[in-house]
């Protein structure tokens, strides 16, 4: 029982990290039909910049702020110089953002070197609590808490504010929103920056969680986020949250019980979804069609 609970918490923490990454991706896709393959690079830069400043200043909070800033700044550059020029052309979008992903991934190695980078949780998050034999690692609970807060905040923003209403309307019918005199490009930039900032946050949270950082995590987690977006349904934040937790928990259980196929579990899950429900768990049917 304790083992199962422990794995569950581990899976939840991983799921939350992936959710932070996938939420931006799914919103950007739902609103502007843009598929950002460079999203993993924002995550990567967030992780490296955050951990670097955290190491320099010994302040985890400053590190988190730096990660969010790094994600948002690179996101803004990406949106302006890479995505806007090829707007509306799916194939070129996929290609150009993939190119950006490659370049940004290699640039990390130029700035911080190609070697592994170590990361430790700050003092106040080290260690664990114990409840009758059940060991709860503080840092994992911290990730789950941050993820839940961000998810709640995102839902509030989308469902209770005027800006969120515009975003939701944009997901449903972009032309209509434009016709009502709202500058959809500005809304898009906002959503993009929000998604990029969440990716950066997710990146730095991963650092102390896995203990080491390397340049390939960008692509690895980027792919995971994509799998989650496809499973959850393109454009649906709640769908992404469910799918992210599903992927995280399933992955954690598989890693414990059948480690041989742990890597394949997510892929298999996506295969099943693509075959039986191509629009994803909570996606709209039209979103998947050509």
């Amino acid at each position: 029982m304790d083992v199962i609970l422990g794995i569950l918490i581990n899976g939840l923490a991983t799921g939350m990290l992936i959710f932070l990454l996938a939420a931006g991706l799914t919103l950007i896709f739902g609103l502007m039909d843009v598929l950002n393959f460079a999203h993993g690079a924002l995550f990567l830069w967030g992780a490296y910049a955050g951990i670097w400043l955290y190491g320099q200043t010994e302040s985890f909070i400053l590190g988190i702020l730096a990660a969010i800033a790094a994600g948002a700044i690179i996101g803004a550059l990406l949106e302006k110089f890479i995505i806007t020029p090829v707007y509306g052309n799916h194939v070129r979008q996929i290609l150009i953002t993939l190119g950006a992903m490659l370049v940004l991934g290699e640039l990390v190695k130029v700035v911080w070197g190609p070697n592994l980078i170590q990361a430790q949780p700050p003092e106040w998050l080290k260690g664990s609590w114990e409840f009758g034999g059940l060991i709860l690692i503080k840092y994992r609970l911290f990730i789950i808490a941050v993820g839940t807060v961000v998810f709640a905040g995102l839902l509030f923003l989308l469902n209770k504010t005027r800006l969120g209403m515009t975003v939701r309307a944009g997901v449903m019918n972009k032309e209509m929103v434009e016709a009502l005199g709202i500058n959809i490009k500005r809304v898009f930039l906002f959503v993009f920056l929000l998604g990029a900032a969440m990716a950066g946050l997710s990146g730095i949270l991963l650092g102390p969680y896995s203990g080491v950082l390397y340049a390939e995590i960008g692509l690895e987690y980027g792919i995971l986020a994509f799998i989650v977006v496809i499973i959850g349904g393109m454009g649906s934040v709640t769908g992404s949250a469910i799918a992210a937790i599903l992927v995280g928990v399933l992955g954690a259980f598989a890693a414990y019980y059948v480690p041989d196929i742990a890597m394949a579990v997510n892929m298999l899950l996506m295969l099943i979804i693509l075959i039986f429900r191509p629009q994803g768990l909570l996606g709209m049917k039209e979103a998947a069609k050509q």
Binding site: V91, I94, I223, I230, I261, A264, M267, M270, P278, Q290
Partner: peptide, 22 residues
């Protein structure tokens, strides 16, 4: 996946290649 939008094919091929590698 070829009846779906272009990125579904991109993602599925990526996944299948990954599966084969594993």
């Amino acid at each position: 996946t070829l009846r779906l939008k272009s990125h579904f094919f991109a993602m599925l091929t990526l996944a299948v290649a990954g599966l084969l590698m594993v």
